[in-house]
């Protein structure tokens, strides 16, 4: 029993820790895709955020400023994507591919120049993203340990759950959200009603980059303490997968990310104790996703105008 509670606590901790960066990326992906712009550049934007976050935290000593700057770095690449796809009507998949090369390329090059290594210098404990409620619980008791595992989470984790709520509210309860969804479904209709589709989409893709950048910063500021070229390997794509899984809704993406995080958490626990091969355990999140898709989710309705450049007649 004690063991079980302990394991559960660790799994929940890992679930939250691993879901957090994905969730930022997924919320970012939601903004872009729902407004009608395919953004497979999330991966590159996360990488940019991961690097910038740690570097700024390292130099300023303030994790929150670092975190924010990680977001801004993502937003910068988001803006690049927006200029190409929204302003110039570029093919969205190709532009996203370009972002996925440019983002890592530029930041790793910067790392080389700044640190003479592809890795950044590890953050000290005070530069890392702080854990909220650390020390609040009495870890000498079983219950306390459990509570500590679950609730003494990184600030960024608390923030992302608030962010999910905010994004949900924005999407479904505000004027901006209604228009944003309309832009992804029928941009011409929006234009005839005097909504500036170009501006809406531009903003959404930038927001998308910002959130992805925060996600990247989470990885290097919570899960590890430094940026390496392999810090972001595929999380961006997993985030996109979570969004498709969640049928392009923030609440759905939340489920997708938690499922992924949970499987990763399972991996941590099982990997430590049982004799099962680590590589096979690592496969679990991906296999489970496919199975869940086949059994429960099925088709995901893509926003009608998703992927189609909107070009205004002159």
């Amino acid at each position: 029993m004690m063991n079980f509670v302990n394991s559960l606590g660790i799994i929940l901790f890992a679930t939250l820790a691993y879901s957090t960066p994905l969730l930022y990326g997924a919320l970012g992906s939601c903004f872009s895709e729902v407004s009608g712009v395919v953004n497979i550049g999330i991966e590159g934007m996360m990488t940019a955020g991961a690097f910038t976050g740690t570097v700024v935290a390292y130099f300023t000593g303030n994790p929150w400023i670092g975190f924010l700057c990680g977001g801004l770095a993502g937003a910068f690449f988001g803006m690049l994507h927006a200029i190409a796809t929204v302003r110039l009507g570029a093919d969205q998949t190709i532009a996203g591919t370009a972002i996925n090369m440019l983002g890592p390329g530029i930041v790793i090059m910067l790392a080389k120049v700044m640190f003479n290594s592809t890795d950044t210098i590890p953050l000290s404990a005070s530069q890392k993203m702080p854990k909220l409620f650390a020390g609040t619980f009495d870890t000498s008791t079983l219950f306390g340990r459990f509570m500590d595992n679950v609730f003494a989470a990184y600030g960024s984790t608390y923030l992302v759950f608030i962010a999910v709520l905010i994004v949900w509210f924005v999407f479904y309860k505000t004027r901006f959200g209604l228009r944003l969804r309309a832009c992804g479904e029928h941009p011409q209709a929006c234009e005839t009603l005097g909504i500036n589709v170009i501006a809406m989409r531009f903003a959404c893709v930038c927001i998308s980059g910002f959130l992805a950048g925060l996600g990247g910063a989470c990885v290097t500021m919570t899960l590890s303490t430094q940026f390496k070229p392999i810090s972001i390997v595929g999380q961006g794509f997993i985030a996109i997968a979570a969004v498709i899984f969640g049928k392009f809704r923030p609440q759905g993406a939340l489920l997708g990310c938690l499922l992924f995080g949970f499987c990763s958490g399972l991996k941590v626990v099982l990997g430590g104790s049982s004799g099962v091969n680590m590589q096979l355990i690592s496969m679990i999140p991906y296999v489970v996703t496919v199975i869940v898709l086949v059994l429960f989710v099925g088709k995901s309705r893509v926003p009608a105008a998703n992927g189609k450049p909107y070009i205004k007649a002159k």
Partner: peptide, 11 residues
């Protein structure tokens, strides 16, 4: 990355 970016905006 830049090459691909400019190919993307060929339009």
């Amino acid at each position: 990355g830049t090459v691909v970016f400019f190919i993307a905006i060929s339009v």
